[in-house]
Design a binder for these strands. Sequence first.
DNA 1: TCTAAAGAGGACTGATTTGGTCCTATTGGG
DNA 2: CCCAATAGGACCAAATCAGTCCTCTTTAGA
Lengths: 157, 157
Amino acid sequence: MVLLGRYVIRLSKLTDYAVVMLSYMAAREGEVYTTARLAQRSAVPEPTAAKILKSLARGSILVSQRGSNGGYELARPAAEITVAEIIVALDGPIALAACVEGSSDHCGVEQLCSMRGNWNRVNRAIRDALEDITLADMAVPFVAPAVVETRPEQGLR
Amino acid sequence: MVLLGRYVIRLSKLTDYAVVMLSYMAAREGEVYTTARLAQRSAVPEPTAAKILKSLARGSILVSQRGSNGGYELARPAAEITVAEIIVALDGPIALAACVEGSSDHCGVEQLCSMRGNWNRVNRAIRDALEDITLADMAVPFVAPAVVETRPEQGLR
DNA sequence: TCTAAAGAGGACTGATTTGGTCCTATTGGG
DNA sequence: CCCAATAGGACCAAATCAGTCCTCTTTAGA
């Protein structure tokens, strides 16, 4: 067994939700959004939305403001937030078999290990691709935020 | 819920094993390898190895020969087998939220759906990256196959 | 033509992992 | 102080995965 239980990259549901919420926030930068509001607008159940937002804050993608009148705000302009960061914030490092540069784990079979190191190339290729795509790119079709505003919630799927 | 239960790409343990086995086979193209032999050499339990090899054959990465003296052989030169193909053979399509080009699924919330379509860009970037890396690239460090030959099996991890 | 060696295919199971919920702090404005 | 928010975990049910096994088919060769 060699992989550390994480995939090179998993784009989980949570990540998808996160992008939806972040895109919504990107429509008006500088504004502070509460969990409740974001949950409604993105049709994600509130507790789950809360969990996602906390992770994003921990990942320095959002800045949180506690107390009343609190909420979340993009930590940076959307064009400076990469998809890679979002994924990392929610699913952990974009990552990685053992036998990978920097890893202290060791598979014990040297010959295999050296070969496996070549996943590095794959990892890097994917990381590079994801670091090139920003939240601003993802949010582009949000041309008419006003329209979205008028659509409260609705069951997904 | 929007993701179809599959990740954009999962590099599972099975995939890792597969690459190990395939690299071994790439050392001498044209040779036919039995499941038992490949399992031994790659330190993967035989039933599991068998499962992987069957999947690779179904994915046209290996050609199988049944009956006695049978076994598996690379379907093409290693330089023509991409990492993308290997992943697809084992984990299914590199893929994909609903609301993605070609998908017939529909999330029901148009505004969200249109935005989610932008995962396409991510999907494409990753697919491109993976289609650029071949088995030959992954197998490179196998400079001295003879050495590997003399190391039967050993517990991993 | 029979036998044994090999793969094909699929059912099944135990263990992880995920998504999702909830409860108890902590923070801060009015 | 009180209420509105977030922080941070613990926790659970359901889905998924790795791994095993059993039966069937194919084929070489004695």
